[in-house]
Design a binder for these strands. Structure first.
Length: 231
DNA sequence: AAATCGGTCAACCGCGACTTT
DNA sequence: GAAAGTCGCGGTTGACCGATT
């Protein structure tokens, strides 16, 4: 493909139609060849992206639901910026869409919540406080777990694909780690985080699902609550 | 009304992983 | 086993649009 001049920028409707027609007939493989055969002056890469993020069937294009938002926040905390993995848990959503949504909507909210609460929590650090934190986070992860089960998403894989609520996971947000590290250092004089980092994400340890608690959690979620709210 | 700013999102880029030859 | 080709991912860019000055 050397020296070829590919078109860039926004896709035209004719291009979309052309691409859809050829992907439907030939399948979504060999994108460079497909682009050529279809007569599109686009790179295979560009065609693949357009198909995956916009044209392929069963994509949702509307606004994210509250439950989708919750799931994104929880999964992002759990596994970081692994957008493709997160996208697999949100049928009809693309990694690009989730990534953009996180960056433009959720990240700031999360940061603001964390920064706002961090000050408060430094002043309220105690064993009771930490137990409350763990209970809170546990509730949120149960929510995500149940949501996946309700939607019959595969749970055979480990790590992100199941939601075993290990002790490590309950404290895995930056926020919780920071607080608990600090406490551990005060108590033991060494960092608990080093040990945590060595633990496998697959470690198990389950928590009971309480439907009533879940319903309350679901009803009251509005980002003034949830993971970062102690009130 | 025009200029500027900030938010949003589609699309691009670079790179590593995987597959094919 | 090596090289070339292809795919998939995460980060970044830039066009567009509405709000504000």
């Amino acid at each position: 493909m050397q020296g070829e001049h590919f078109r860039k920028g926004t896709w035209l409707q004719e291009e979309d139609e052309q691409l859809t027609s050829f992907v439907t007939r030939l399948g979504g493989r060999r994108w460079d060849s497909l682009a050529k055969v279809a007569g599109l002056r686009r790179s295979g890469k560009s065609c693949r992206l357009r198909w995956m993020n916009y044209l392929r069937p069963n994509l949702k294009h509307g606004p994210f639901s509250v439950e989708e938002e919750q799931l994104i926040v929880q999964l992002q905390q759990r596994c970081g910026n692994k957008w493709s993995k997160i996208a697999r848990r949100l049928p009809g959503r693309t990694d690009n869409e989730i990534k953009n949504y996180w960056r433009t909507h959720l990240r700031k909210r999360a940061q603001a919540q964390q920064e706002g609460k961090f000050k408060y929590e430094l002043e309220n650090t105690s064993q009771d406080f930490n137990q409350k934190r763990i209970d809170m986070v546990s509730k949120d992860y149960n929510h995500a777990n149940v949501y996946c089960q309700e939607n019959e998403w595969e749970t055979k894989d480990s790590s992100i694909d199941t939601f075993p609520l290990s002790d490590w996971e309950l404290r895995s947000s930056l926020h919780d780690s920071r607080i608990l590290d600090w406490i551990a250092q005060l108590q033991n004089g060494n960092s608990e985080k080093e040990q945590e980092q060595e633990q496998d994400c697959n470690s198990t340890g389950t928590y009971e699902y309480n439907p009533q608690e879940f319903a309350e959690c679901r009803d009251t979620w509005d980002y003034s609550g949830s993971l970062w709210d102690m009130n």
